[in-house]
Simulated assay, not measured.
Amino acid sequence: MHFDPHNEKLLIKMVRSHGIEDLAFLFILNVVCVAIPGLSNGIFCVLNGILYGPAIGFGINWVGDVIGQFVLMQLLRKLYNPDKLKHSKIYTLLMSAEGYQQIGLIFGYMIPFIPSATVSYANLLINKTRKKRLIPILIGTIPFAYLYAYGGDSILHLDGQRLIKAGIAIIVIALLAISFVVVTRKFKKHKK
């Protein structure tokens, strides 16, 4: 009601007074939401930013995303034959970008509206070793892990400028991904 700097500090202190149990619970929820196809972990990632700030929230989001993607890949390997995905549009698009498949996978993990199960399938097919599979996950999950935590922290601080910056960053990442897809398709047409 009376939002001044002193009350803001009290609100932040009150909201961020959580123990390790809460952190572990949110971390597990984040991993589970990433590992189950069709679920979104976005709400928990924003909540991590609100409850723990941008730095710790980013760490929880990023590590949770990486572990969740690995759990998802293991589930996909056990439940389905990855070779059946060789006809999917994402896989054929990535394979047409010879020498740039890793960059394509990074963009695939970066963009939240691309199903992570499909990107994980493609990662399984393209990269044969665990280390190679890990690289696009580690890099691709960084931007949104940070943006969600930063956005959550901005919501708590009621900072409109920071929210606008986060929105602009999301648009820039989406435009980069779209331009990668367009360039890849042009390479594919040029090869034919």
Rank of each mutant, 00 (worst) to 15 (best):
F3A: 03
D4W: 06
P5H: 12
E8T: 10
L11T: 09
L11N: 07
V15F: 10
V15H: 14
S17C: 12
E21K: 13
L23K: 13
L26T: 08
L29F: 14
V32T: 14
V32D: 03
C33Y: 05
C33Q: 08
V34Y: 01
G38H: 08
S40W: 04
I43L: 14
C45A: 15
L47M: 12
L47H: 11
L47N: 08
N48T: 11
G49F: 01
L51E: 03
A55Y: 15
I56Y: 15
G57V: 02
Q69T: 14
Q69C: 12
M73V: 13
L76E: 00
L76K: 00
N81Y: 09
P82Y: 05
T92I: 01
M95G: 01
E98H: 13
G99D: 05
Y100T: 14
Q101D: 07
Q102A: 09
I103A: 08
M110W: 01
M110F: 06
P112G: 05
I114Y: 02
P115H: 05
P115S: 04
P115A: 02
T118W: 06
T118E: 11
V119G: 01
Y121K: 02
A122W: 00
N123R: 03
N123D: 06
I126F: 01
N127E: 10
R130M: 15
I135T: 07
L138G: 04
I139G: 08
G140K: 02
T141W: 11
T141M: 15
P143L: 11
A145D: 12
Y146C: 08
A149H: 07
A149E: 04
D153P: 09
D153G: 11
D153Q: 09
I155E: 03
I155W: 08
L156A: 05
L158F: 07
G160P: 03
G160S: 11
Q161A: 15
R162G: 07
L163R: 12
A174I: 09
L175S: 13
L175T: 14
L176I: 07
F180I: 04
F180E: 03
V183Q: 09
